[in-house]
Design a protein around this nucleic acid. Structure first.
Lengths: 276, 276
DNA sequence: CCAAAAATAGAATGAGCATTCCATGAGGAT
DNA sequence: ATCCTCATGGAATGCTCATTCTATTTTTGG
């Protein structure tokens, strides 16, 4: 490709990269990923700083640029700079475009916008209602635990699935109390007062989740709860619980705020354990 | 002014310039005018190029910067660069606002606010980048399917878990291609051209997801993809794919926007099927 | 399994950069 | 009028940058 004309703008470059995806050598691919992932940094950085961030050699950046027909890295970087400038200039344009486009909105986009609006609402509500003390206590409880038991069903299940994934990455021992073998009770029987649990249950409440939270609580295992109402059966048997109401769109709720909360709790716990 | 602290952001600088308007020497005034008039060029230019454009000496630019408390021109230029970045996404803006406003903020709340800001940002980005046509096509493909196969691993797994739950409620036949029995291939072997699949894969991409999406695609099953980069191995074997980049907080990403998108797609498909 | 080709890492290089320095010029006070 | 102060122009400087070069590793093709 070296002999050809270089892409004229950022979108062309993007297209060229996508097209060559299959044939691009390893390191050049690394640069390509970084370039598309963090275009702002590409615009401002130097070969040295970008190379370090992308974990390649500075010379690789030059080879990458030449691979796409540029003289050197500088020519490539110009594309990223112009992109930033243009984004700025046409900012109002884009807003207007969104507004006008809003009239000819397809049904799919209308639904998506509904969920996006609901997501914003949920996140804002959570920001305003969060109890800082409760959050600290919850982090303390979970950070102290030997093993964290994660209890959830149905709609709440994805939340603990994600937490389990993140905890795993962070080397925090946890177990999802799940049911494909049907040995949940055996699993829970292993929990001791040195452990802790995190239980999630949204309306309509799954009876098992509440029952398991209660069982754990009675055996001296501290339970942190996440639910959507003070009347939730979960609230009764938790040491700390949080109320989180996801805004709904047309009767359906997404998990936008719950996921943000779950990640905050997960990272908070890992951070606390790291400090200790 | 030379001894004082430099302005922290572009607006502060602007205010400082306006305030000193009367007492600023002639050449420094010239620089000030140029800086406010063409901030983009200030962000990208070199002392030489800017000096020429503003019709002053390079050293005047340095003196100008020092006059406002910076070490040199580079520190001043940083303000103009950050201004350009922030215009694009208000994420960092908001984070800094949260930082400055939250005086007695506990660590847990700080982390949560980070994820909330990231969530808002992700949702906004999704709203701005969604391709309405692609969404309609995806809904059409999935609505026509006899059975929808859901492919995802690791971080993406909670998304399809939730979709499976919601599809179940909505009486749309679907199957999560998951692995506790290890019969994934047998499961996929049942898929025909009358079916369709939805595959999710975020970096770092799980090889199995991409492979399964490709296998399905090769057998005539239309695949709708959700990923975070045009370079994702998933993009190669999909009939329609969406790029969704979750903003991160301290290197961790939540699934706020992904969940909103998943629900929009789910409800959109159910709605389309109801109409047909 | 080997040879040829391509890709890569890392040091070397030269150009261009921000910055400093100093001589000169302008303006105001005594 | 003469000094003093501060702004200015422009050359000098040292440093960082993008780029090139070469030895080595990895990949490709017979």
């Amino acid at each position: 490709m070296t002999g050809q004309l270089p892409p004229r703008d950022f979108d062309s470059l993007r297209a060229a990269i996508v097209e060559m995806r299959a044939t691009l050598p390893k390191r050049l691919m690394q640069v390509a990923s970084y370039a598309l992932e963090r275009p702002d940094d590409m615009a401002f950085g130097t070969t040295a700083s970008i190379a370090q961030a992308a974990e390649v050699q500075p010379s690789t950046l030059v080879r990458f640029a030449q691979h796409f027909g540029f003289d050197g890295f500088s020519g490539l970087q110009q594309l990223f700079r112009e992109r930033l400038k243009e984004r700025n200039g046409s900012y109002e344009d884009r807003l207007r475009h969104l507004e006008s486009g809003g009239t000819a909105e397809t049904e799919g986009v209308a639904i998506l916008n509904g969920f996006l609006a609901a997501g914003h609402d949920s996140l804002s509500t959570l920001a305003n209602t969060i109890d800082a003390d409760a959050l600290e206590r919850a982090i303390t409880i979970l950070a102290r635990a030997q093993t964290i038991y994660l209890v959830a069903r149905r709609r709440s299940f994805p939340i603990v699935t994600y937490m389990a994934y993140a905890f795993g990455k962070l080397k925090v021992p946890c177990r999802v109390v799940s049911t494909s073998i049907g040995n949940e009770d055996d699993l829970l029987a292993q929990a001791t007062a040195a452990d802790a649990a995190f239980a999630v249950s949204f309306s309509p409440y799954a009876a098992e989740s509440a029952a398991q939270a209660q069982a754990l609580s009675e055996r001296g295992v501290a339970v942190v709860g996440l639910t959507d109402s003070a009347l939730s059966p979960l609230a009764a048997s938790t040491a700390v619980w949080f109320e989180l109401v996801e805004a709904d769109h047309a009767g359906f709720r997404s998990l936008s705020a719950s996921m943000a909360f779950a990640m905050a709790l997960t990272v908070g716990v890992a951070e606390r354990r790291r400090q200790a």
